[in-house]
Design a protein around this nucleic acid. Structure first.
Lengths: 255, 255
DNA sequence: CGTAATATTGATCCGTCTCAATGGAAGTGG
DNA sequence: CCACTTCCATTGAGACGGATCAATATTACG
C-alpha cells in the first residue's frame, strides 16, 4: 500500500531542510505498539493486542523534521496519524497570505480529517516529530468496525472542540496583553519546565503572533513589558520562565 | 427520571419573558420520532425503529421561547438535546462580561456536552425553539451501546470543529468589513430567503457583534456602508437582501 | 568570527472602540 | 388609533490600541 503526498516547506518563517519524510523503520510488526510511548493516551489505547496488530498493519511510522508540512489546507484527505513525539501546528490562511494557527498538537494527539473528503487546514511540524501514519480510507474502515476506537476519537474531538471554542473568546474579545498572558499560561500547562523552571517554547514569535491574531511586533512588545515588570524572565529566543504566575493569571483575565 | 436545570434570562439584550421551559406533550411514545421533522438529519437518523423507540423513552420534547437559556457555561453537564426547530447561540464570556458567541445552531443540530462533566458554554434560544432533550448520563449510556449513533455524533463533531476552526481565521485575521461580509454570506447559505430575496436574521446587531468580535457600532457602520454601496438592502431591523453577491464575496476575502 | 535569521525597539498611522447624541421601530396604555 | 415609552440601531467626534514601516540588536549557526 503506497501513498503519495506532497511535502514541502511553508513560504514564510519555517525555513530550511527540504528533507523527505522518512519511514522510521522496516516492516509493520505489532511490536511497534508494544513499545509505543503514547499507547495509553492515543486513540488506539482501548484496542486489544490483536486489534492493535491489525491497525498496525495498515499504518507505518514516519519521522518529520521541523518545518516539514504533512498536509495542506484544501487537499484531498488522504492520510491521518497519531503523533508519537513532537509538536505540530494546524493552520489556515486567507487568499492574500494572512495566516491563523488554529491548533497546536502534541504527543498522543490525532491529526488529519477522518470521514471527510478534504483536509481543512495544513499540518506542519514545529519540532522534529514522529508520526504513526494511516491511509485515511483504511483507517476509516477500521474505525467503523471498532467502536472503542471511534469512541476515543469522539472524546478527543469533543475536547478539541471545547478547547477551540475557548480560544475563540481569546481571539474575539481579549486585548494583546491578555492574549499573550493566556498563551504563556497555556504553554506552561502543556509543556514541562526544566530544572530551572524554564519552558522551551516550540514556537517562534511569528508563530505566537499567528496563534493570537497579532503581529510579531505586538507580541514582542508585550513579552518585553512582562519581562520589565518581572512577571516572566527570558532565556534565549525560545526560553521563558514564569516568575509570578498569579500576576500572569490576572493579566490573562484583564486587570 | 426527573431532571432539574436552571432556566433564566441573559442579563444583556435578551430581554423579557421569564416563562418556564415547557414539556411539549404528554408521554414518550415512539410516535414522536415517526413524525419528527429532523429525523433524517439528526444524530439518531441511522437508528432502526426499535432503537429509536428506546432512545425516545429516555428523552422528552420541550419548547423554548426566544431569550431562554438552556444551559450555562461551567455548569455540570446534565442534559444534551437535538434541535427540532429554531435557532440557538452558544456563548462564552470573560470574567468582566465580554461575550463571544462560539456557535449558532439550527434545526437538526445537536447541543450539549456528551461524555464530559462540564458544559463549556451557555446555550440560549435566539428564536422560539423546540428541542428533543435527554439526560446526559442516559444518553451517554445509550450512545455507547449504539455505534451508529456515536458515528453520527462523531461526524457532526468533526464538521463542527472544521467550521469553528475556519471561524478562527475570521476572528484572528480579518478586519471589520471582511468579518461582516463573511457573516452575511454565511447567513445567506444557512437561511432560506423569502420570495423577495430577503433573509430574516435570527440575530440582533449586538449578537452579530458578539459573533464577529466587534462592537455594535462597528457592525452598524459596516452594514450602513454596504447599503450605501448597493451591495445589500435592508428591510426592517432583521431583514437583509443581498443585491450583489459577487461584490460581497470579494469583500469577505479582502479587496 | 562572520553571517543570516529572528527578535526588539522606535515613530507614526489607521481602524476600531468608546462615549454621546439622535433616529426609528415595536409595543403599551389611555 | 395615536401618543408615549422603551428598546434597538444609527451616526458623529475623539481617543487609543495595535498595525505598519523602519532601524537596530541579539541569537544561532556555519
Amino acid at each position: 500500500m503506497d501513498m503519495q503526498f506532497d511535502l514541502a516547506q511553508k513560504a514564510r518563517g519555517d525555513a530550511g531542510m527540504a528533507a523527505m519524510m522518512t519511514p522510521a523503520a522496516g516492516s509493520c510488526s505489532a511490536g511497534y505498539c508494544d513499545r509505543c510511548e503514547v499507547r495509553d493516551q492515543a486513540v488506539c489505547a482501548d484496542l486489544n493486542p490483536q486489534e492493535r496488530a491489525a491497525l498496525n498493519r495498515i499504518g507505518r511510522r514516519v519521522t518529520l523534521q521541523a518545518g516539514q508540512t504533512v498536509m495542506w489546507e484544501g487537499d484531498d484527505s488522504m492520510i491521518v496519524a497519531n503523533v508519537i513525539e513532537g509538536t505540530l501546528k494546524l493552520a489556515t490562511s486567507t487568499g492574500d497570505g494572512r495566516e491563523q494557527i488554529v491548533g497546536v498538537v502534541y504527543a498522543s494527539d490525532f491529526i488529519g480529517r477522518p470521514f471527510g473528503a478534504r483536509t481543512p487546514h495544513s499540518v506542519t511540524a514545529l519540532t522534529d516529530a514522529r508520526l504513526c501514519l494511516y491511509p485515511r480510507g483504511a483507517f476509516d474502515g477500521f474505525a467503523r468496525e471498532h467502536p472503542q476506537l471511534e469512541h476515543r476519537l469522539l472524546q478527543r474531538t469533543l475536547d478539541d472542540l471545547d478547547r477551540t471554542r475557548a480560544w475563540m473568546l481569546l481571539l474575539g474579545r481579549k486585548n494583546a496583553r491578555e492574549k499573550v498572558a493566556s498563551f504563556l499560561l497555556d504553554m506552561s500547562r502543556r509543556l514541562r519546565a526544566d530544572a530551572s523552571g524554564v519552558i522551551d517554547l516550540p514556537l517562534s514569535r511569528q508563530q505566537i503572533a499567528d496563534i493570537l491574531g497579532l503581529t510579531i511586533e505586538t507580541v514582542s512588545r508585550q513579552i518585553s513589558d512582562m519581562k520589565r515588570l518581572g512577571v516572566i524572565a527570558l532565556a534565549g529566543r525560545r526560553g521563558v520562565r514564569i516568575c509570578d504566575a498569579n500576576r500572569l493569571e490576572s493579566m490573562a483575565e484583564g486587570e
